[in-house]
Design a protein around this nucleic acid. Sequence first.
DNA 1: CACCAGGCAAGTA
DNA 2: TACTTGCATGGT
Length: 212
Amino acid sequence: MQVKLLDIYQRLYDHFGPQQWWPGETPFEVMIGAVLTQNTNWGNVEKAIDNLKRAGVLSYEKMAALPAGLLAEYIRPAGYYNIKAARLGNLFGLIRERYEDSVERMLAEETEELRQTLLSVRGIGPETADSILLYAARRPVFVVDAYTYRILSRHDLIGEEVTYDDLQQFFMDNIEPDTTLYNEFHALLVCAAKDYCRKTNPRCSACPLEGV
DNA sequence: CACCAGGCAAGTA
DNA sequence: TACTTGCATGGT
């Protein structure tokens, strides 16, 4: 492709500044947030995580031992609380059975192997798996989401038919592996989509990507 | 009131 | 295979 992705990144960074996404205190907290934020506003996820913190159960050992119904109550503000409680339970099952109850051992797994393993968990799809890899395990893995599609297609940079893996590969083929850069770029695309590329606002006015 | 939010899986034909 | 639906709270 002719357009330089780094040019897009630079424009967005100049316009919006650093985003400092996902400032969780531990990789475990970040991982939980990755599941809770599925199709959900981050503000609601913070409420759920705050519930877990105040209850003193925001650790693998404590959370994995909770009855499903109680876990669901804590994460209620994040929405879809029953299904998310089940999904977290599935993730804890993976940690128990494959990584000997050790989050550290899981996060130390080789990147591609860990990605495939995460994808085998019911309730963890590509975006959640890659968010865990990038934001919790700090691997240089690009996270694609609905906003990534929307922005690139609105600017005629991709076709409507590209898959998640296509788009991820496109970014990773054109940008050097860099965890911090991938982190900021993803956050900036979300930021731009919210401000200029909403579903109800197909024509961007004052868009920082005008003319790319 | 309607619409949206940092998805994913199951059901239907 | 290709669409559609369910899951659910909270902010604008």
